[in-house]
Design a protein around this nucleic acid. Sequence first.
DNA 1: TACTCACAATGAACTAGGTCCTGATATTGT
DNA 2: ACAATATCAGGACCTAGTTCATTGTGAGTA
Lengths: 168, 168
Amino acid sequence: MDSPDADGLLAEQLLRLTRRVHRIQKHHLETRRLGITPAQSRLLRTLAHYGSPPRMADLAERLEVVPRAVTTLVDALEASGKVRRVPDPTNRRVIRIELTEDGGRALRELHSARRAAAEDILAPLTDEQRAVLGGLLDTLVDGTSVPADSASVPAGGADAARGPGRDC
Amino acid sequence: MDSPDADGLLAEQLLRLTRRVHRIQKHHLETRRLGITPAQSRLLRTLAHYGSPPRMADLAERLEVVPRAVTTLVDALEASGKVRRVPDPTNRRVIRIELTEDGGRALRELHSARRAAAEDILAPLTDEQRAVLGGLLDTLVDGTSVPADSASVPAGGADAARGPGRDC
DNA sequence: TACTCACAATGAACTAGGTCCTGATATTGT
DNA sequence: ACAATATCAGGACCTAGTTCATTGTGAGTA
């Protein structure tokens, strides 16, 4: 055991970083530039990853929020013309959400803005370090279902044997 | 590798992780267990790192929020007996915030709860990986000197002149 | 067929966190 | 003594999320 508090310290760092990301996302990014809030941005991105227009409940699940929260977000996005509610012909209970052209445009702008913000945060890291970080984050984020192999990224190697990037 | 989107992907992962940390902190942690909210927890921790009782404005600065936000938090914490507002004898404009014994107790509980939560998040990582992650986060978090306005530091890792944060 | 139950989206009301603008005091500089 | 300024707090507002209740629809079953 190194210091008795190693994980507590890591947690602290994680919290600080988390906070920073949060702030940047809020201030630096979507809100001002495009007139959409972070949550709306998240919904748009999620939407873009879907093949066919999802139902509200699908979005809720994917966003890990309660369905009611999606309603509000979609309300706002629809009001600003970024998405459209489309009735499902086979089941009149459900409505499907699809991206409008305007929404697609916003998404593209978002994407590049986000890249810039990432650069902002990641500036102190070398490319190698970024690769390593990517691998670790991947393990962390996907690690909910416990892969257990844990490829043990040995610091230097730019292994980054990441899964299929489902980002655009 | 450097797919054209490497940083975008990293950003995506960062956002997801951020979200996850946020959720865990909220649900799993302080709120239920101790009856204090995440923001209050943050204030308590910040308070503990101060040598002498800080002013409201100090806390606001440290927490990176507007002073008014601190007022609300302190209101709540004072109401539940975790902190105390103490008038400053040398300057009647300022009040100083200090931790009560109850607050100290809460803080200790918080600390261990947070360690557990960290363990929860970091579970998929080996000790080695944690060390590496710690180093990277250290580099990242300390790299804050840029005030995030008009930053845009060129991408090259060359600028990262900082020595080894810890390992790597 | 009619009843009941489950599901999908949403309305209403609430909490937490945070912002801005305004104002009341107290301190300080001239 | 008086004006400028710093410190804190009240009020109104926003974002993001929750729970609970309601409405419309679909489906299984007596």
